[in-house]
Design a binder for these strands. Structure first.
Lengths: 348, 348
DNA sequence: CTGAAAGCGCTTACAG
DNA sequence: CTGAAAGCGCTTACAG
């Protein structure tokens, strides 16, 4: 335990230089040096020597660690993202420091700073909602750590981003319900300070407009991404005299809350209410009725984000290249999966 | 970007010692030095100085980073564990490096080594299944990094462990079905090389024995913790002429696979088959029928494990204390939640 | 209170 | 091919 290069070298009667080189593995040209290298490695395992990664990174300025900042790991959606980011980066030899924000901007700022102090090679981040008076993080801006934003885009961001075509996603879910004859369509979204919420809501409004329907603000609930909030909002919605005939929940957590409320209210889906979810957790198909949903290609996106980060890291490492500061932003298409929770509205 | 203590000091006309001390914040006895300290800090933010955590840790030998090794982050059960470990350790000022093994012992060994090279202050690990010829990891043994095992216990382990009373958990689920009059009870477990699988199965066998029922090996499926395996096994079980009247799935992933098979087979629960799950994912109550399940206190356990790790870390830091090598092992009780997926067996 | 100096554990030109 | 030496960016006794 705790043996160092110096101790190892002394026990071998060699210099740290030689031992270091042998251990690095580019040292076996001749038969005689090859034997030497093997002797060194044997002694290393004998002493239980394990190099100090901190010292190495300090010296080489190369770091095989990246940060991942997400709002919530229990959420199936982000759990899927984390898995793929972790796996993809892991295959490239990187370790991942996981940070969970709970959508708290201050927590996120602290975590970003900590990751920078850890000198991570880069970060994948799902940004939290903005604060009211969003003073720009100066250090963050000046920092050269490559960052890829995933799913959500922070205001004034100048980094790469891998996003969903949120407007279209909102449109698709709404359009499906309109096509089934629904007119009073309620929607649950996150706070308007989050890009995805705003844009999905835009899609919803666009779809209504395209059908010549005026937006009824009372059918829109924009709250935090928490199931309890969604539960309460849905309960209220369902208790109205002029109850909507359809409901869209635009994120995983909102789906859970909405479904809980629907069960509590004993409202029958799809007979009394058509329901459209977002995302595509495994258990969606285990429900009866199975959920109609706007599926989001999160796993793909996570892989893309990881690769893009890798690219940025390599770019930042190669000295010659004048780091292109043009952010690369891509948007991936959602697609509707029609199952059993939506149906044609019966004319009454 | 990238400014160092030295640069900062030079720009202030001070020594690095003074600046370092001022930044560390124990430097404001007098009014005059207090002003000095503030001037230093102002300049630090001005230059966007952020200390290099690697250099600091190398020097101080203190590390505010721990490792977390789990089999699968998409699994609700481990996602819950990860969340609580992350949060608890985060509150104590630690960052968490997340490693996912997919139950591959070689991946786990590599990850442990990497974490040791990162000189993490400690680890929480859910061990993978053993390999056939389990050669002991010598370095791991010699290493002094504090480790807490969570949920599963590795063979010959000499570390602390926070576990479930698995025998009792298996007993409870089985006993419930026996009390309802079931005699042909099938069970899905993980590989026998995992402690939880073995012990839960023991509980199952004990319960059968207590009811004077001989164990029928053909009703036991011990496979990998993967839903596709569980799906196939369940399909086979349900296609038998002497189909069991009850089924227990002893982990989250096995529950998902079993339910998929049940739906495919059009077997009605609980009329034709009583079903007992394990764990308590949120969506269990969203199903119809809602799932009867053996709930496991994973969130509590994750918190306990995190605290226990913190304790071990502090112990390892205090030099005087002769590190007690007696492992502390605790087991937490599962508790049965009866919902609608189990019912009295009708005598025919 | 301040600064010069040593050292944490590595890697890597640079001579030999 | 090998070793002595410098240095990555900090912190912390040690004198002054």
């Amino acid at each position: 335990m705790g043996s160092t290069l110096k101790e190892l070298s002394k026990s071998l009667g060699l210099s740290t230089s030689t031992v270091s080189r042998a251990l690095s593995g580019r040292e076996f040209k001749r038969g005689t040096t090859r034997a030497q290298a093997e002797r060194i490695m044997a002694q290393a395992t004998q002493l239980g020597y394990e190099p100090n990664g901190l010292a190495r990174s300090l010296k080489t300025k190369r770091r095989q660690v990246v940060g991942l900042i997400i709002p919530d790991i229990k959420n199936d959606y982000y759990a899927a993202a984390a898995t793929l980011v972790q796996t993809t980066l892991g295959e490239a030899g990187y370790q991942v420091i996981l940070c969970v924000t709970n959508d708290d901007p201050e927590a996120e700022a602290a975590q970003r700073r900590l990751l920078r102090e850890e000198r991570v090679a880069g970060m994948v981040v799902v940004p939290s909602p903005h604060q009211r008076n969003g003073r720009v993080q100066e250090n963050a801006l000046r920092s050269s750590t490559p960052i890829i934003e995933l799913v959500r885009r922070s205001r004034d961001s100048s980094t790469d981003a891998v996003l969903i075509d949120d407007v279209d996603a909102g449109w698709q879910g709404t359009r499906h319900l309109l096509d089934l004859g629904h007119r009073r369509i309620a929607v649950l979204t996150g706070p308007r300070s989050v890009s995805t919420s705003r844009l999905r809501l835009n899609g919803y409004c666009d779809a209504l407009a395209s059908a010549g329907i005026a937006v009824d603000e009372s059918l829109i609930h924009a709250g935090p991404y928490r199931r309890d909030a969604a539960l309460r909002a849905t309960l209220t919605l369902l208790a109205r005299d002029d109850r909507p005939t359809a409901l869209i929940a635009t994120s995983n957590e909102l789906v859970v809350g909405a479904l809980q409320a629907i069960m509590q209210s004993n409202v029958r889906v799809p007979d009394e209410l058509s329901f459209v979810g977002f995302g595509n957790a495994d258990w969606f198909t285990l429900l009866r009725p199975a959920l109609t949903t706007v599926a989001l290609p999160i796993e793909n996106m996570a892989i893309v984000a990881a690769h893009q980060l890798l690219t940025r890291i390599r770019l930042a490492d190669s000295p010659g290249v004048p780091t292109t500061k043009t952010p690369v932003v891509s948007r991936y298409q959602a697609h509707l999966i029609v199952r059993d929770s939506t149906r044609q509205l019966e004319m009454s």
